[in-house]
Design a protein around this nucleic acid. Structure first.
Lengths: 214, 214
DNA sequence: CTCCAAATTTGTAGTGACTACAACTATGGA
DNA sequence: TCCATAGTTGTAGTCACTACAAATTTGGAG
């Protein structure tokens, strides 16, 4: 009973150990995948490296891909942004602002190098590319719901168009980011990367807001 | 030598038999998938039903999904439309016209019922959904090339935006078509379906051309 | 018609993700 | 101290797919 109150951190050795094991597996897996490439590492390899049974891996992660796409559904960020935004501003403006913030955050993060390597790992694996597409699809569906809850005036078709077009925009900008960032991003050039991405975002979101003919 | 000239139809009993086998496998597979659902039919089932070895199936089709997504890359239609269009009209207009023609064609086809069932089969299978996403991605990449070849003025980012936004539009409209068409489409109501799709297309392409704020 | 070389088909063995399930072990609490 | 339960492990099996060698079919040369 009381334990439930402190649930955030640790609610008993048992749960703690379980989370530890889970984290260990995830970390070991991520390291192996980034080093050798997702498709050249078997789940058995991961299990052996983490010193657990193969079954234990599947007890914690439903699929091999989940070993990498672990951390709390960060790809749903845009949906949260819509949910948290008041009904004041237009949806596209909210999403544009969210994306700009997100990019700046990532570029300034100490994990920038890791992020780039992570992106490359995905790009090199058909299975992970498929998973990324699936995540994008899921995001789009949830965004349609979020948009309609935020503004009941919005028709279903309208909402789907906004969600789909945002997803398209995000995809293009992620690709652009991959182009802009060199293999080993340099801390001294972050301002340059940011400048390039802001320009690209202006073009892409400009097309969303004012149309391809505008 | 001479055989090569008549290559379209039949260039020898050998090739003909091979194509026959291929066609038989594809037909049998499609039937089974539509009847029982893609995920509830194994490749071994298909092989048995077509009275060939499992290996033979894989000799003709690289993956199980290819058994259904067989016929000559119809999903690249929009790319062909761009390639065939003169440099006169704007890209978006070409694509809008293409999509409207395509929809009208499909609605008027004698295979409308089959089309609906086909779409449902895809919708019910995670593996086929993944494949559809992959096809869409492939289409988008080729469209970027086509757009840039057609109009060298067009910057890479611009081209990517157009391709991605068209893909988004198509996705939304395909979903809308699935909603508009009942399980058993009736020939007498084709005009209604068409009307509904034309309206939806106007909304979706309107957003592409004039922006979400327009 | 006969026979060879190439094209196809087939069977065998194996890999790897993933599932079902039963046995085993550690742990929290009575 | 002991038990019910959560978590781990091992075993056996399914299914898509690959590699490869053996068997079969076929087109064409002599």
């Amino acid at each position: 009973m009381i334990a439930k109150l402190l649930s955030m951190e640790t609610q008993g050795r048992r749960e703690r150990k379980k989370l530890q094991t889970r984290q260990l597996i995830s970390d070991v897996a991520t390291e192996l995948f980034m080093a050798r490439g997702f498709d050249h590492v078997t789940v058995a390899d991961v299990a052996k490296a983490a010193d657990v049974a193969v079954q234990t891996v599947f007890n914690h992660f439903p699929t091999k891909e989940d070993l990498l796409f672990d951390e709390d559904a960060w790809w749903l960020g845009p949906v949260r942004a819509i949910r948290e935004a008041g009904p004041g501003a237009g949806a596209v403006e909210v999403l544009e602002q969210y994306y700009l913030d997100e990019i700046r955050m990532r570029l300034r993060s100490e994990h920038l190098v890791t992020w780039k390597a992570f992106a490359r790992t995905i790009e090199e694996s058909p299975a992970l590319l498929a998973r990324r597409r699936k995540n994008a699809d899921e995001m789009e569906i949830l965004m349609v719901q979020a948009l309609q809850e935020r503004d009941p005036e919005l028709g279903p078709l309208q909402a789907r168009v906004i969600a789909a077009q945002y997803q398209a925009a995000q995809k293009v900008l992620e690709a652009e980011l991959a182009r802009v960032l060199p293999e080993q991003p340099e801390a001294g050039r972050i301002a340059q990367y940011e400048e390039a991405m802001e320009q690209a975002a202006a073009v892409v979101f400009g097309a969303l807001k004012h149309g391809l003919r505008g």
